[in-house]
């Protein structure tokens, strides 16, 4: 089981590298899909079926959003740096990441060993969850009962983000269009500036 897990993680890392280094943005996004769907399998292996279900839905939606954006704009990635500057940027980035990896490697030894979590809080939830909430799925019991306020905060963040998307993507308002029958958006904003 550990071998399958490590193989899936290596697949995810390869997918991430391809997603970041590809020249075609559409193939980059589909490589991001590799990472997301491999994550679904990892969740199933780690005994988290709720996470796997949510991740499948979310990954599909994210791919649809990104592909729609790409089809609306452009597919080519023309932002390649050339020459000595490119080597300098890559060396700086890799040097920083190597330093980060070195220090994080020393911190990771402080964590509990894989497969043996501490579970100081969760022991309580596991023993009392069914009698206190009546929910047989303990993840649902934690989300909706023990930590209900967290979920309320999550819903607030979700609402704010959806409002942001609507505000950013909305068309020009009806009243503005009646006032400026054949002028473009740019002249409209310039008029506001003049006021």
């Amino acid at each position: 089981m550990l071998t399958i897990l490590i193989l899936l993680l290596i697949l995810m890392i390869l997918g991430a590298i391809i997603a970041l280094e590809g020249k075609d943005l559409l193939s980059a996004i589909i490589s991001l899909g590799i990472v997301g769907f491999a994550l679904v399998l990892v969740f199933l292996i780690l005994q988290a079926p709720d996470l796997a279900i949510v991740q499948i839905v979310v990954e599909t939606l994210a791919l649809i959003i990104l592909i729609a954006a790409i089809l609306k704009t452009t597919r080519e990635d023309t932002t390649e740096t050339r020459g000595a500057k490119k080597i300098f940027i890559y060396l700086c980035g890799l040097g920083f990441l190597g330093l980060f990896l070195f220090f994080i490697n020393q911190t990771l030894t402080e964590l509990p060993r894989f497969g043996y979590p501490i579970m100081r809080m969760a022991g309580n939830y596991l023993s009392l969850g069914l009698t206190k909430t009546g929910a047989s799925n303990l993840v649902a019991a934690i989300i909706l009962d023990f930590r209900g306020y967290d979920t309320l905060g999550e819903v607030t963040v979700l609402f704010t983000a959806v409002m942001g998307v609507i505000v950013v993507l909305r068309k020009i308002g009806r009243r503005t269009r009646e006032k400026l029958p054949d002028e473009t958006k740019v002249t409209g904003s310039r008029k506001i500036e003049e006021k």
Binding site: D50, M121, Y125, V139, A141, I143
Partner: peptide, 8 residues
Amino acid sequence: FVDPLPQA
């Protein structure tokens, strides 16, 4: 059972 808290 596995730890349900990180999953939530």
